[in-house]
Design a protein around this nucleic acid. Sequence first.
DNA 1: AAGGTTTGTACAATCGTTTGCATAAAATAT
DNA 2: ATATTTTATGCAAACGATTGTACAAACCTT
Lengths: 334, 334
Amino acid sequence: MATIKDVAKRAGVSPSTVSRALSGKVPVDKETRERVMEAVRALNYKPNILAKGLKEGRTNTIGLMVPNICNPVFPAVARGVEDVAREHGFTVILCNTDENIEAEKDYVEKLQKRWVDGFIFATAREESQHIFELKEKGFPVVLVVRHMGQAVDAVVIDNYKSSFEAVKYLINTGHRRICIINGDTSLTLYKERFEGYKHALQAAGLPIMPELVLDVAGRDDNGYGAVTAMLKKGILPDAVFATSDPRAIGAIRAIKDCGLSVPGDVSVVGFDDLDISAFLDPPLTTVSQPLYEMGARAARRLIDMINGEKSGQPKVELVEANLVIRKSVKVREH
Amino acid sequence: MATIKDVAKRAGVSPSTVSRALSGKVPVDKETRERVMEAVRALNYKPNILAKGLKEGRTNTIGLMVPNICNPVFPAVARGVEDVAREHGFTVILCNTDENIEAEKDYVEKLQKRWVDGFIFATAREESQHIFELKEKGFPVVLVVRHMGQAVDAVVIDNYKSSFEAVKYLINTGHRRICIINGDTSLTLYKERFEGYKHALQAAGLPIMPELVLDVAGRDDNGYGAVTAMLKKGILPDAVFATSDPRAIGAIRAIKDCGLSVPGDVSVVGFDDLDISAFLDPPLTTVSQPLYEMGARAARRLIDMINGEKSGQPKVELVEANLVIRKSVKVREH
DNA sequence: AAGGTTTGTACAATCGTTTGCATAAAATAT
DNA sequence: ATATTTTATGCAAACGATTGTACAAACCTT
């Protein structure tokens, strides 16, 4: 494990000269530089990032907080973050928080002390006071997928609009009894998707029927049970709007298990557009979120902040989500 | 950003005393310790991990190399790694390599210099010379999912056996023309799965028919195209053994798109048992890999190595995979 | 040829910890 | 009471890099 001193000795110069030859910020004699480089190669010298970080006050590392990497929306986001990070010489630390604010706080506390230069949170909740505090302290923070008002920079889709459009599409294709399988309504994101659903119905003069509003909570609950229960009670929607693709998959399974067909009896629309969604039976009509792109943008934004491009006001960036139409919705005549 | 000196000043002691009070390795007067602790609390002091790492020569960080976190087998592995790592006070750096050995080498070079204390590779290939070198240099390394002979510690399933059992199950349920959709055969893992397929066929006195052996390469290729092409040529298997669940999904879609039914005309067996696999149509019979457990075990092993429990000989740990039978296979009479 | 620049390099301090050594104070033994 | 051990603490060096300051040598200028 060669240090800068070893290189210096071999090149017959001082450590400072080695440092300068390597950084290139200060002129170094051409011939000296070559001797240094040759020594660097010979000893396979790589600077110790800890020492460098200690001196410079930064580590070129970012922390990425996700609820659970096993939730299929997050790998794509993580990938976007990592690709951009690497491009800029940054490294990514991955943290799963399981929606546990205390666990997240611990993690943040630990990483924040000179470990990481900034955070990307895909975990923001209304109660996430610590994110505000971080931001206020001047620590670089960007949110992705979920946002917190206008106070913190974020990269998200317009959940209200996407949901509105999806439900409007169902209405336009002749559906009247539209069920929604919603996620954890303590999350703004699902509140917004629910608002979109409600307003699309209202705009068309359709009533909101409580028996068609299904909430599922835990992370492993894809709605199979809730849909089955509804159907068994004899409540029959003509369409299901699932607020995630796994929930759409669960709904389809439940509908079929009750002897009904998709989309023959019940149409289904999902949300996410996972890799496999086009290959389901039927191929899923779903709202496509540009997850990779969102991760990439969030990372770019964060790195700009870290590099001191203080962008004054925080900005919530909206990226386009769009409904991709496949075969899980049937046009109904009345 | 309070340092140990600030704490020392506030508690009226020297930095060394603070360090000792905190580490607990050396006796410190009860009353002094309390003053220190109180100062720590008051200033919200957290040790600077960089400085600590620099001094101690370790960082309590591990590097996790995966081909691509978007491949659905890896999130579960990553989660297992991360949970165990956190339990032991370690942090995980996530790296996607896209099967690119050069990219991986760069990453490793960079991280290795005092950034991370060890590596978990889910990316091992036969050509991965650098992993051997790392191992030989005495750097802690554990493989997961893929292994490299007996030379490097690893946590894997018995791919040969699992594949053999899956195909044997198809044979026992009356299938005679069994197609395999295999992955990248430059990977030992897929070689082994292919061997299992071959030997199961041979053991039953069945021929290996080249037109039923489909190889798919790239990461986004789920075999939909290959299966469709085969079917269009009029080649009709009575079962498909897919070496991953996404490939099973692609195969099912292709079969149905050709107007055939699963499992009526063609049975399908997958490999992985993803979260959604039970909810497909038909619910997928598939080899279940304990991915989370594998990640967790790999992490435990690595941390033991880092902590100096030199386990002499490297050990390749086999974990149990088992076929979970659902509805994508039909029993056929002859 | 003498003074003034420029250029290249070395020295030493610094980042925030940990730890071996030295020492003072307290506890124990004689 | 003195000598000896134990206990608690401080000092200073070290980990491996970066960088401001200082100085020597080489280059100009007139």
